[in-house]
């Protein structure tokens, strides 16, 4: 809890594998939550290779890097995004963020603490992989949402991410979203399959079993690629497309507290 007494729900979006739609989910989910009346900020936590600003066609004058180095106040960096949510963009090509220093850790903690008093949701869009930066950003979030596609490499990487979060952060519940799934049943089946392997190989090593929550699926939809090429937000550009509707359902599932994991790292 911060000094203002209010506290946002902090959700980290991660995947292990790159290119599975983390930023797509982060941005569209944020817009869908705004439509439900929530105040939402998406923080581009892919500090070295950020591209949330590109996806949303924004032209940031300052980035998270300026806040981390104390050159800008947080309020001067936050931008309004299409879809009604707010964005904290990060810089791209900054090699200093390829390693996590204690300075960056402290500053990120401070920034997130300050922001969490002003929003209902803080969505942390992490980079790909399982670097110490990605894991640190995830550790700042009370809830984690793992995005995967039905591709074998994506499933294997999602599993590795789940295993690490369970063993290193003592997570007891993790949300899963299957992007480009054929249908809801497929997504649910993949989650069940992951749960079986987790039960056998991860839950035998942890004090409390990890439960995977199937938050939803997003169907393959040509509208997604079309919006991306135009650098427009799907949820705004094609609100009636199947993928937009699925994102709205995701937002509903996330926003309905009973269905979601609220597992804090210990």
């Amino acid at each position: 809890m911060n000094s203002s007494g209010l506290s946002a729900r902090i959700v980290a979006i991660t995947s292990g594998k790159g290119g599975v739609g983390k930023t797509f989910v982060a941005a569209n989910l944020a817009a869908a939550l705004v439509k439900r009346g929530r105040r939402v900020l998406v923080l581009d936590a892919d500090l070295g290779l950020a591209n949330l600003d590109i996806v949303l066609n924004l032209n940031p004058k300052a980035t998270l890097h300026d806040a981390l180095t104390g050159q800008c106040a947080i309020k001067d960096i936050v931008l309004a995004a299409p879809g009604g949510f707010w964005v904290m963009p990060a810089a791209s090509g900054l090699i200093e963020y390829s390693r996590l220093t204690s300075d960056v850790q402290g500053e990120l903690r401070r920034i997130i603490d300050e922001l969490s008093g002003q929003y209902d949701y803080l969505i942390l869009d992490t980079g790909a992989g399982i670097s110490d930066l990605v894991l640190f950003v995830a550790s700042l979030a009370k809830e984690v949402l793992i995005v995967a596609t039905p591709e074998p490499a994506s499933i294997a990487d999602a599993y590795a991410t789940i295993k690490i979060l369970a063993l290193m952060q003592q997570r007891t519940s993790l949300n899963l979203v299957f992007n480009q799934a054929r249908n809801a049943a497929d997504g649910r089946k993949l989650t069940e399959q992951l749960q079986q392997v987790v039960d056998r190989f991860v839950n035998t090593q942890t004090a409390t079993a990890v439960r995977l929550v199937h938050l939803g699926h997003i169907p393959g939809d040509p509208a997604v690629g079309s919006a991306a090429r135009k650098r427009q937000l799907l949820f705004v550009q094609a609100p009636d497309s199947p993928a937009s509707k699925a994102v709205a359902e995701l937002a509903e599932a996330l926003d309905a507290p009973a269905k979601v994991s609220h597992c804090a790292p210990q």
Partner: peptide
């Protein structure tokens, strides 16, 4: 101290085999 959590061959095959059959 589980500082690393490598995914074993057994885990991978259990993850992916049924999936392969499925598709």
């Amino acid at each position: 101290a589980p500082v690393a959590a490598p995914v074993s061959f057994d885990e991978k095959s259990q993850l992916l085999d049924p999936f392969g059959r499925d598709s």
